[in-house]
Amino acid sequence: MTSLGLVQIVVYFLVLLAVTKPIGAYMARVFSGQRTFLHPLLRWLEVLFYKATGVREDLEQRWTQYAGALLSFSVFGFLLAYVLQRAQAYLPLNPQHFGTPNVSPDLAFNTAVSFVTNTNWQSYSGGESTFSYLVQMAALTVQNFVSGAAGIAIAIALIRGFARQQMKTIGSFWVDLTRATVYLLLPLSFVGALVLCSQGVIQNLHPYTGATTVEGKTQTIAQGPVASQEAIKMVGTNGGGFFGANSAHPFENPTPLSNFIQMLMIFVIPSGLMYTFGKMVGDTRQGWALFAAASLMFLIGVFVCYPAEQSGNPLISRMGIETSATDTQPGGNMEGKETRFGIAASALFATITTDASCGAINGQHDSFTPIGGLVPLFNIMTGEVIFGGVGAGLYGILLFAIVAVFIAGLMVGRTPEYIGKKIEQKEVKMAMLAVIATAASILVFTAISAVIPFDKNSYWNSLGAATANVNNGGPHGFAEILYAYTSGTGNNGSAFGGINAATPWYNLTIGLAMLIGRFLFLLPLLAVAGSLAAKKRVATTTGTFPTHGGLFVGLLVGTVVIVGALTYFPALSLGPIVEHYLMHQGKVF
């Protein structure tokens, strides 16, 4: 590791720590219906939404009604995104004349699901060569806002479950969705887009520019409304880039400073929501305990990934090539990384984007060393609770907090409590349902794709067997399939690379994995919210397990890691772990 790399990591964490409380306190005010400094500017817009849609601001919902509203909203979002893609040839804002053949039905399905579930897995080769500006803006960017807002709404509903007592309702999905969009995502994205523009991110509706290279060849330089999509892509932890190269593209992420800002934008809401949790349940120490657990896991991930990448491939140094960092070269493993970012900023970005359910990339994870690549993979497998996606990270770590206090309760033979609520059969059943649904999706789809045969030139997979779509053999090829379903189920959306997933088989099954990972994970947690809201708060006694101290933080981290390790260790052993040992024996894939 280099001192400059370490400074980048430390500065990043300190800035994150500094912004957590202000943004968290602001969100607590927004979702408690209190006035904020943005109300004079934006309250009219919130009211306009209610008037236009007939939503009553004072009408709250039971958890099933809340879930019904979310599901109906998502169905509508899916249908709109699907139709816009398939009909783009007949719609305006299409200067490149992209047609229906650019978007097959399976690709439209995958993309619509991907953006509705806040995943932004991009099965297409690049938005700049597939979608019109209208699709990019009205289908993809709009979903970036509302799917992120929906995730925040669910987290707020779960917080209310802990904060309330003897109530049947957990808030209104429509009001939470509107407030998350109007007071949080819109202003943050607006400011973020302006800052990114200042760094050179483009924002226009121009036709693509033709250029002649020094070799005399013609090159098409894509244009478009990039900054506006880029900002919400990060703030909403969506991750779907305007360009296929995502945040490695110089028009999306031109400078080391824009890279730093983008990394900060990914964590700002998830980190702040942990403070919001503490604030809304009346004990900010509870929020800081979650923050401490997430920080610990985040730093462990960074300090496994970064040294692995900085060490590079031992086979190259055995050939007598200098792989250590010097004044004139970064050393280590630079394959698949942008020279303007280097190893530390690429390893940090990869860790952050997979801790959160963002999925933006500034380097190719497929080109990481086996251990460096294992970190992003394992981060997603933890359920993306290391700060996590907007809303999804908080309700994910609260799920593990429920499991952790349940385990602690079993150890001492006492009914577990968390934030003054007794954790009983219903809560534990729901938490385990969420864990099992996501694990089953990852492992079952991966296992099927590792063995399923198809005829060459068949509709489902024209390349033949599903394993024919990977570019590498052995454990690396297996890791590519495992990563695809892990990324889809975890609603991350980042691609390991090295797999051609643009076939009906992968589009359909990864699409289903995204739906399972989103809805079969959050619906049980909404049930937990409803169950907890109806309970009385019990008084703290000397026998109550304190959930704001180091012991709880350790137990929570242990639960996350152990559940992840026990569930996925066999699969990881067949992929990056065995690949790491084979690499040291001189065999690479």
């Binding site: 958890w63 099933t64 879930a67 019904g68 599901l71 998502s74 169905v75 899916f78 249908l79 699907y82 398939r86 229906t100 097959s104 039905p105 399976d106 439209a108 399905f109 619509a112 699901v113 219903k426 059943k429 729901m430 349902l433 359909l508 289903l512 739906l515 809805f519 079969l520 619906l523 049980p524 909404l526 049930a527 409803g530």
Partner: peptide, 30 residues
């Protein structure tokens, strides 16, 4: 072929959401 495929994929998605609603009701009763 394409309109049939469009219908196929739309139905798959709608079926998932219907199943999710049934799952919600089941969670409520559990």
């Amino acid at each position: 072929m394409s309109p049939m495929l469009d219908i196929f994929y739309i139905i798959i998605a709608i079926l998932f959401f219907v199943a999710s609603w049934a799952f919600t009701k089941a969670c409520d009763k559990l």
